[in-house]
């Protein structure tokens, strides 16, 4: 069965970019959400193998959504990668404290993103 990735971003430009990247270079099934609340609903219903989530979003930001997801038993161990504008230590620390596993900075570098995602989803690269 194909692994599912949940892409979460309020920017349709970024979602389109990420969709194009994953469709071109991987076989993962893609799920999309536009804010933190929608992401939580979709994640609970679909139980994706990995979540790639923007930090700044309306309704519920990425950090809050990440904390909420970690409270849910089915999502406790799902790798969550945050997409952040600023890679400063303060933001990164807040991300890790909220329970995310990794982060990438904007603008997205395709090769870097695919490598990180594959690292989490391939059998020999499974990270906890």
């Amino acid at each position: 069965m194909e692994k599912k990735i949940l892409l979460v971003d309020d920017s349709s430009t970024t979602l389109l970019m990420e969709e194009m990247l994953f469709r071109e270079h991987t076989n993962y099934e893609l799920l999309l959400a536009r804010n933190g609340e929608e992401a939580i609903r979709t994640a609970i219903a679909e139980e994706p193998s990995l979540i790639l989530m923007d930090v700044i979003m309306p309704k519920m930001d990425g950090f809050a959504a990440c904390r909420e997801m970690r409270r849910h038993p089915a999502l406790r161990r799902v790798p969550i990668i945050m997409v952040t504008s600023r890679g400063e230590s303060r933001n990164v620390e807040e991300g890790f404290e909220s329970g995310c596993n990794d982060y990438v900075t904007k603008p997205i570098n395709g090769a870097e993103l695919i490598e990180i995602v594959n690292g989490y989803l391939t059998d020999n690269g499974q990270r906890e």
């Binding site: 890679g87 990164v92 620390e93 991300g95 890790f96 982060y103 900075t105 870097e112 990180i116």
Partner: peptide
């Protein structure tokens, strides 16, 4: 950039 573990 990726970090294997955190927070720092």
């Amino acid at each position: 950039m990726t970090l294997a573990s955190g927070p720092r």
